[in-house]
């Protein structure tokens, strides 16, 4: 039976996302240049909340899209074919500051793939990275610009993010095998 600990509860997640939104607003003065792109699957609901928070701060809508990185992964022939989710970027990213959003930052390979996938859609002015949880164990030179919570983990542990799950409060859980 795996042992699980809640590392972020409902209000913890809300506070973290509010803080990240303010940090994004602080670092990017021109609100019209910011677009948010969530990485499928886990990053999309985090991205939607961040975009909501930001549009409240700026009193202006912030474009929010989603990107699936499975066609850009570097391990496709070593694993069963992944489920591909829709990529929806209904705005031009060229010249924009794109804030990539994921739920958990781990090896960094997903982010590498996301940056490759994103550049197929245009040439962003800059790309920033926001994550709800950074659990370490990077395999690539990638660092998040905005972090909800730094959580040291062992390789065997799992981080489970439950956001917008029907009839349940949001939570981030650390599971030990």
């Amino acid at each position: 039976m795996p042992e699980s600990t809640i590392i972020l509860n409902n209000t913890g997640i809300q506070r973290a996302l509010t803080r990240i939104a303010h940090e994004i607003a602080e670092r990017n003065e021109i609100s019209a240049e910011i677009v948010i792109v969530g990485i499928q699957c886990g990053g999309v609901s985090v991205a939607e909340r961040l975009a909501q928070n930001l549009s409240q701060i700026w009193s202006a809508p912030v474009p929010c899209g989603s990107i699936d990185v499975n066609m850009h992964r570097d391990d496709l022939s070593h694993r069963a074919a992944p489920t591909v989710h829709p990529t929806l970027i209904p705005f031009d990213v060229t010249g924009k500051t794109v804030v990539l959003v994921d739920d958990v930052l781990f090896s960094g390979r997903t982010i590498r793939a996301a940056m490759d996938a994103l550049t197929d859609f245009g040439r962003p002015k800059r790309i920033q990275l926001a994550v709800l949880v950074d659990r370490g164990h990077r395999e690539l030179p990638i660092k998040a610009d905005y972090v909800g919570k730094n959580q040291p983990t062992s390789q065997k542990e799992k981080i489970i993010v439950r956001l917008a799950v029907r009839d349940a409060l949001d939570e981030v859980v650390l599971e030990r095998p």
Binding site: M71, L76, S77, A80, A81, P82, T83, T110, K158, I159
Partner: peptide, 15 residues
């Protein structure tokens, strides 16, 4: 794309 997939597990947690 689908037949190219290997034998490993489909789900890879975190990334």
């Amino acid at each position: 794309f689908l037949v190219n997939g290997g034998k490993g597990a489909q789900e890879i947690t975190g990334g």
